[in-house]
Amino acid sequence: MKLKNIKLTIIGFGEIGRGFARVLLEKKRFIEREYEVDLKVVAVCEIGGSIIDEDGIDLEKALKLAENKELRKHENWTSMKALDVIKKVKSDTVLELTPSDIKSGQPGLKHIKESLMKGMHVVTSNKAPLALKFSELQKIANSNKVKLEYEATVGGALPIINLRKHALQINKIESIHGILNGTSNYVLTKMAEEGVTMDVALKEAQEIGIAEADPGYDIKGIDTGAKVAILANSLMDMNVSFNDIEITGIKDITPEAIELAKKHNCVIKLIGDVNRLEVSPRLIPINHPLNVSGAMNAIMINADIAKNITIVGHGAGGIETASSLLSDILDIIS
């Protein structure tokens, strides 16, 4: 069987980038058999430099070095920055997996723009560029006849964008409500189930690796807001930016409010309400499909023909998110 070579550039080799590399190794044979392609990673870019090998990087070796923070010891390590790699190394698809900066969208924004303008498809998990410049980036992709895919930006492994694209084509989406941030959901669940304060719940979330050292993005609702902006553009054809989203986080929720909700058979959840372009804590009946526990994410769509559909799953994690990234890559290939 003759395999078609597909060259990939990975920008950002943190949790998501490494998760993707691991899953790519695990599913290599499956992808070759089912899609008749050989997915070759020709560049891995990190802060300070990149590994480049046009014949394909040995990912197992790169992973081992990255785990020990010794990526620069790789024999193909160069000091070339990601933007230069995009300009000089030709690949079919660029995976933009750097962390989000919602104020500027950088460095992801320039990476995505440059890749599209160079005629390469982009698959990204980086919310900020899309939340800020959705329509501009789509226009650049269209005018360069390449694709910009972003399933991994919302809900990690949840196939929400592709669900709309491949299974709900004829539907008009009338409303979308979602629990789109695992950390805030974990904290609210702990407060409700164990009666602990927010500080205690947050510390626990940090200890088990769910929350970042600075969980402000999650608790203030910013992360959810970025996802609402992406869903509004992609699923409801609104032309909006992150700055149009009204955001109230969960930091001022008292244990007493949680107790009151519980007494009345409800829970409090941080909800992204796409119709209203709003993120806010909301009261939900305990038997509602959006009442999911722990760090889980859930998205409920109301469509004119299919009516209510709710999907629940892991909204974060390197391995889980790789499911969405690979789905986008294979979608482009097919």
Binding site: H177, D252, I271, S280, R282, L283, H288
Partner: peptide, 9 residues
Amino acid sequence: FLVIRSLEG
């Protein structure tokens, strides 16, 4: 005040 609305509110 901080208000927490029901989902349908």
